[in-house]
Design a protein around this nucleic acid. Sequence first.
DNA 1: GCCTGAAAGCTAATGCAATTAGCCTGCGGG
DNA 2: CCCGCAGGCTAATTGCATTAGCTTTCAGGC
Lengths: 185, 185
Amino acid sequence: MPRASLSRETVVGLALRVVDEEGPAALTLSAVAARAGVATPSLYKHVRNLAELRELLSAHVMSEISARIGDAVLGRSGDEALHALMAAWRSYVRTHPGRYEAMIQSPQPGVAEAGERLVDVMFAALRSYGLTDSGSVHAVRCLRSAVHGFVLLEAAGAFGLPESLDDTYELLTRMITAGLRAPRP
Amino acid sequence: MPRASLSRETVVGLALRVVDEEGPAALTLSAVAARAGVATPSLYKHVRNLAELRELLSAHVMSEISARIGDAVLGRSGDEALHALMAAWRSYVRTHPGRYEAMIQSPQPGVAEAGERLVDVMFAALRSYGLTDSGSVHAVRCLRSAVHGFVLLEAAGAFGLPESLDDTYELLTRMITAGLRAPRP
DNA sequence: GCCTGAAAGCTAATGCAATTAGCCTGCGGG
DNA sequence: CCCGCAGGCTAATTGCATTAGCTTTCAGGC
């Protein structure tokens, strides 16, 4: 394989830097090519098109999140696991807001697969609550919704008031953990 | 004012139809112009550029949501008000998924203003819980995060399993209402 | 050490959307 | 009846995605 200065992975890496530094809207093949020091059409030797690059990027970010969260939950259970999970998730998005935004706007295909790991981690974190199977499904959905909504709004700067966002997230965490322990209706 | 077949409002209306029928990605000046039966540059007589159209659209959608939710909460209080608020929000997004997605990707400026009404409605709905001022702020943020996250994931088709989404939303609603009644830590 | 084929890059060309500049015209108020 | 201008138009520019087809480099076989 000649002249392997670029590769699929390198291209995705450069794309990550673009969204990190200039935001998801700046992710163009031209921008990536410029960073690679290469003409735009050359990228087509590594990715099918912009849509595929977006998908690869999304899948990469999703994997990264799953890994972080998986690590955070390791060896913990119950409220402690939930707390660690939510903290790790938020922390990732605060560190890479551009990546998270870029992730959510790509179509599902490859992302769904990478997302399954995250869902698995969430199920594992909930195991000690002793929920039924379908109870876990609902619980995971609620957890996911709450965290996803919060980190998105935080990243968008949608919380203007001076109150501490840490306190808010703490409250959200408690709502979830308490809700999981609450009796079935 | 001659030939007033188009107006700022008409243009926004056509843009709404575009995102409703073809999704937020299809919102281009060309698409709007085509529906208006007019050449693309003519739109510049009504909106400054595509960015402004997006902003107007976002503000419009935000107002629409606030109005719906405001109506839903009218005359209710406590858990009932919260329940109605969340139901109305989700219902709006299910009816117009394209609009909601289009709304969130525009920059803040005009949207923030329209969003304040929504925040006001949420504060009003929470009044009967007897929270402190800053307690209300945190509560509103949690409510907003949870609902926003859920409707976004639902609209994106991110919930693949067969379990009832209505049940999940019911659980989420209960987590919020219960969390508001819970003692301070 | 030379030859070859495919990988990886390049240039040229097409098409579409945004945006700008400048022209044309219908029509409401005088 | 005339004038001004709002509102529409065409032409032209720019930037990005994508395709086609050419060129170069280098890994291996001879």
